[in-house]
Write a protein that binds this DNA or RNA. Structure first.
Length: 308
DNA sequence: CCTTAATGGACAT
DNA sequence: TGTCCCTTAAGGT
């Protein structure tokens, strides 16, 4: 699934294109029918993210909570006020992609393209559909999609660890939660009760950039290293929100040319240090990057740069 | 065309 | 540790 940066982009998108308007809410697939009925006709007042959870606040004192899980995705379309609308989420082998639904959004340059006349027939299993006067959003394949009270939403946030993308959040709480555990740092970074929003790519890349051994017990992480790790993650994830992709390499570590001698593009092959680079030479020390399972997920690391 | 793995996580066993 | 969620794209036939 998209990591935390994508969910923050989604929250921004919902604020930009739906907030302040009454929405028709439905569930073409049927599995969100009850929830849709409770929200239908209500006005979206805010959209926010904490880690990988998206919260849509409606003026009827109800909140729609969505977690995309491994392969959930939102797609958008609409009229000219939806310019920049995109599809965010879903598993993408080479990383997150965002595609603009041009067919549904004719612009001034599109000549005779038909004007926006409402959302298309639902394609596939559309769990939830939100429609305003200007556009629509379809949700497919989420692991969670429910209507809850503001109090219940607050309880969800309360049991999550700090999110580096939430303004005003510092490393203190993160350090506290990491250093009282003896399990591996690589496991703790993926634990949403320790830190919110980090997934498998940010885990691997941030540990590499910090030169930290993924098997280091949390309680053995020094305060200075912990603060550096947090600050680096905060920067990487903020970049992710801005760019829409996870890019963690520094320019001096990227390949100038690809195997065919052509100038190598940044995306996708030059974007990461270790993620999905097992068997390739480390960009920094030349040691072969390795992969192993940690908590049923692939963990990529460089034995040279991240030695115990 | 079919198979498989993928940026999660809740829940059952 | 296994199952679901039931999408998507890469990679192999």
């Amino acid at each position: 699934m998209p990591e935390g940066h994508s969910i923050h982009r989604l929250a921004r998108q919902f604020r930009d294109v739906f907030a302040g308007e009454p929405l028709r809410v439905s569930s073409p697939q049927g599995r969100f029918a009850d929830g849709a009925r409770r929200l239908d006709g209500a006005t979206l007042v805010d959209a926010r993210a904490h880690g990988k959870h998206l919260f849509l606040d409606f003026d009827v004192d109800l909140v729609m909570r969505v977690h995309l899980g491994l392969y959930g995705a939102w797609s958008f379309g609409g009229d000219e006020t939806f310019r920049g609308a995109s599809s965010i989420g879903a598993p993408r082998r080479m990383g997150e992609t965002e595609t603009f639904d041009r067919a549904a959004t004719p612009g001034p340059d599109d000549g005779g393209a038909p004007a926006y006349s409402g959302p298309p027939e639902p394609v596939g299993q559309v769990r939830a559909r939100l429609v305003s006067a200007h556009g629509w959003a379809d949700l497919r394949g989420p692991s969670a999609c429910e209507v809850i009270t503001p109090g219940e939403a607050a309880a969800v946030v309360a049991r999550l660890g700090p999110d580096p993308l939430v303004a005003g959040t510092g490393p203190g709480e993160f350090l506290e939660r990491v250093t009282r555990r003896s399990v591996a740092l690589g496991q703790l970074l993926m634990d949403q009760a320790v830190l919110s929003g980090v997934g498998n790519i940010y885990r691997a890349e941030s540990l590499f950039r910090a030169g930290l051994d993924p098997w280091l017990p949390g309680r053995r992480l020094g305060a200075a290293d912990g603060v550096r790790l947090w600050e680096d993650l905060a920067g990487l994830m903020a970049d992710g929100v801005r760019v829409g992709r996870i890019i963690t390499t520094e320019p001096e570590h990227r390949d100038a040319v690809d195997p065919d001698g052509e100038p190598a593009p940044l995306w996708p092959d030059n974007a990461h240090y270790v993620y999905q680079r097992d068997g390739l030479d480390c960009r920094v020390c030349g040691t072969a990057v390795r992969v192993t399972q940690m908590q049923a997920r692939n963990l990529f690391w460089c034995p040279g740069c991240q030695a115990p």
